[in-house]
Design a protein around this nucleic acid. Structure first.
Lengths: 141, 141
DNA sequence: TATTGTTATACTCTATAACTATA
DNA sequence: TATAGTTATAGAGTATAACAATA
């Protein structure tokens, strides 16, 4: 098979992922993407607001508001840091974990339906590609 | 190789694509995503506002505003339909094509940098996966 | 002085509802 | 009556600037 030039290959892959992301975005879910993303991060480890803002690449006020709303909904808790009174540890609650599970199921449905139409060899290729994509995105969720 | 259960595989692939899309979104570009997406569509074929709205999955007023802004910037033209005075054909201009090219270059840079670190076999796997992803997204850009 | 987090305010992209003009 | 498109208005998520509390 002739090798596709790298920039063109990059473009095609990028567009495919963006389209897929966009396509998935059309699916209205019970929990909005920015909440989902923060909860997914908190599932792995507690964070401060500043850490969350940096990780999610949003401003401090923006994350402050997101966390405030998650608190209101009982999806996270906020505990003061014992050694630094300016800081608060944000942690996911049982409700938050449940919301995350439900969000994942909703978001997965379209994807599963589409993958079910593919031959096993294609599924394997996609599984391999997924692992490779992971490696080039090191520092993200 | 043991087959990963399909829902889990779907989840992993979905998350990888969403993270990639998110990661690409951090890159501030000269042209916003909703403009870029419409221009990319118009590059392939002229459309009416209603067609664009349906394709991009946004409301008619939302697309109306997007088209109005693209017109203001000289990136598209708007010609009345000769047979139906309610309709207008939106077409991309030379400036629009230039903006599209520039946007693609900007958006591609991070991707190319990452892919350049991979062995050829991984590149081939990703290229194959891209084609498969295309097939399961039939009706989208 | 620097840092964590919040409040005040505004911008962008989106939506629904109501409208104009054509069909 | 139905359709293509617009205007009016509002909501969600984001940002920057200015602030309070703490280090």
């Amino acid at each position: 098979m002739a090798a596709t030039p790298l920039p063109e290959m990059a473009y095609e892959l990028r567009m495919a992922c963006l389209c897929l992301a966009r396509r998935l975005r059309y699916t209205k879910t019970s929990i909005a993407p920015h909440f989902f993303s923060v909860l997914a991060r908190l599932e792995r480890a507690d964070c401060t607001a500043a850490e969350l803002a940096a990780r999610e690449r949003v401003s401090a006020p923006s994350m402050s508001r997101t966390v405030a709303e998650l608190l209101e909904r009982g999806l996270v808790t906020r505990q003061p840091d014992p050694t630094d009174k300016r800081r608060f540890h944000i942690a996911i609650t049982e409700s938050g974990l449940a919301a995350l599970r439900e969000g994942r199921m909703e978001r997965n449905q379209w994807m599963v339906e589409r993958l079910a139409t593919l031959p096993d060899s294609d599924i394997r290729t996609l599984a391999d590609a997924t692992k490779i994509l992971r490696t080039i995105m090191d520092d993200d969720v």
